[in-house]
Amino acid sequence: MAGGFVSGFTHPILGWDHVVAMVAVGLWGAFLGAPAIWLLPVIFPLVMAFGAALGVAGVPIPAVEAGIASSAIVLGMLIALAVRLPLWLAGAIVGLFAIFHGYAHGAELPEAANPLAYGVGFVVATGLLHLIGIAFGLLVRWPAGTVAIRAGGVVISAVGAAFLFGYA
């Protein structure tokens, strides 16, 4: 049980492309304010789980790793440029990228020692990364905080680009 949880928990946090993209979801949600601050971290795990289900079922999805790296680039750019999209479009973008993240984790689910514990660990780790992003995003109340958040978006994009072009 514990091994399955640890395996699932560490899976998202041991890949920097996953980490920055999931932090970016919370960060962008906080940056956009209510209701995006809670809606994006709700949409992401739900759609991610459907992506994981596709991985479990063995449905082929092309360019999964490129999709994960692209999610960091796009979400980082949206934060860096302070883009305020309509809520439905923000949800659609986050949901689209969530499929790639979920697929990458879900493909390993059937081999897990305890699939339930793996799933719990992987969802909890994802949610905690969102909460880190939300906490960082609350700095938006102060002008200097807004600058720090937008700089964070640049860093997130850079990490994504490093993964996409094979530098990481």
Partner: peptide, 21 residues
């Protein structure tokens, strides 16, 4: 609480996929 609900739903989606496959 709504985020926790989403986590429960997400875990159930994956377990449902495993059970169905």
């Amino acid at each position: 609480l709504r985020i926790l609900s989403a986590w429960i739903a997400a875990i159930a989606v994956m377990m449902a996929a495993l059970a169905i496959t």
